[in-house]
Design a protein around this nucleic acid. Structure first.
Lengths: 238, 238
DNA sequence: GTTCAATTTTTGGTCAACCAATTTGTAGGA
DNA sequence: TCCTACAAATTGGTTGACCAAAAATTGAAC
């Protein structure tokens, strides 16, 4: 019963401040290029500690909304975006990611990574991918779990794709993927052997510079993994 | 001449600490689930202030590597990923995103968003997209810049796509897109009218539930915008 | 020998004071 | 009148101390 009251107060001070600053910007009181009030003034005005104000500014800086200049002030950098309803705060909730969304998005990114890797891979990239694949194979043949090695292979492909943004996004969702997969215990039985073969096919197409075939192979591979994890999930429920 | 010396010291304390923690994890001294040494201990061990340790932990928490439990400790959440060579530090450099990478990745995400939106859009989604489009049109017809309204339309499409992960990733790269586009002053002349027509086509296909046509329309639209910004860039260089 | 509760210790969260760099204001000289 | 040099005020950066909550420890009761 008392929990209801706590729920209200659950809005952390930082979120509260972010809301306030966003309000100032969207209401036009703060425009791009303007200087924010000093941290002290803000803290006093909002009735919170300066630490909270600093944390809030740090988060907004992360998203390119603000830019803080040492010993000078904090300025508004990002335009209008902040006016777009409550969207900004939503970014902070990537953890609630539905599993199916995660898999769908991962497939999208990885397929594209394989496609561009086939176009742009250098000799060095090929060596890196080969090494990652060998490390994966070694673990599998010894019957050891190889989730990390699996993902490392995929990330070297992203590396070969030569798209820093795409790679960054993959890195952002990777922890969530790992979390879900270890939960499902994908390690058991001979699943890994099939995965290994599929990895080899993907690498072959990338080496031979066949973008669409590489993309297709990656798509099929991820489809396999997804199907497999779904069967495991069903076993869980019986 | 003196700048060279500064360059060396440019490694901020936070980056240094991130490197140290990464070292601990990749060397196997810290495994997923383990508790990190307390902030105080780390600060003393590394010879820096506790604030820096907190900042570093906050950044790593942002990417799902660590998870801090209030009054309890900080644990390692992401598995093996951190063992993957210097990849983690690269995540933090999303701002150096090459413009071409950004555009390429945006196109990938938006195209997929349009495709799924055409499959899953509800009546409410249609209303939201229509409203966003109207707001855009109103600004354009008054000769006002409408970058924010433009992006809002795109984001409502992502919303209609019903993939929280995809939407989150789009939100992450949006500030960078805005930054680059306002820099190029895309606002002048009648470019917006053409954009408006393209938006209408995209919406039409989404409403009529034609996934592939919607995806193609979005792809063409973004290709147009990209080409246009390239011509502006060339004008800049003359 | 085991269990449970009280107490001590450790933890991350918060705050207020201090520091160095920057900016701003001002007075003096050309 | 304008410019320069210097000082005062303001800024974000950093530190150490304090707080409440969670863990770990201890010891008494059974």
């Amino acid at each position: 019963m008392l929990k209801n009251f706590q729920e209200i107060a659950v809005e952390t001070p930082v979120d509260k401040i972010i809301g306030q600053i966003r309000g100032l910007i969207s209401s036009g009181q703060l425009n791009p290029g303007d200087r924010l009030p000093s941290e002290r003034k803000l803290a006093e005005k909002l009735g919170v500690g300066r630490t909270h104000v600093r944390d809030a500014i740090a988060k907004l800086e992360f998203y390119g909304i603000l830019k803080t200049l040492p010993q000078s002030g904090t300025i508004v950098e990002g335009i209008g975006i902040t006016a777009l309803e409550g969207l900004i705060t939503d970014v902070l909730k990537l953890e609630k990611s539905e599993f199916v969304d995660l898999v769908e998005t991962r497939a999208l990114l990885e397929t594209q990574a394989a496609r561009t890797a086939a176009k742009r891979r250098t000799m060095e990239d090929i060596i890196n991918m080969k090494n990652a694949l060998d490390a994966y194979e070694a673990k599998v043949r010894n019957g050891l779990p190889a989730v990390a090695e699996d993902l490392l292979f995929h990330l070297t492909i992203a590396e070969a794709g030569r798209n820093t943004v795409l790679k960054s996004l993959m890195l952002i969702i990777t922890p969530d993927i790992v979390k879900n997969f270890t939960k499902l215990d994908v390690c058991k039985d001979g699943r890994f052997y099939r995965s290994l073969e599929e990895h080899k096919v993907i690498l072959k197409y990338i080496v031979n510079q066949k973008p669409e075939l590489a993309a297709k192979a990656m798509e099929d591979h991820l489809q396999d993994v997804t199907d497999y994890s779904k069967t495991l999930k069903m076993e869980d429920n019986h």
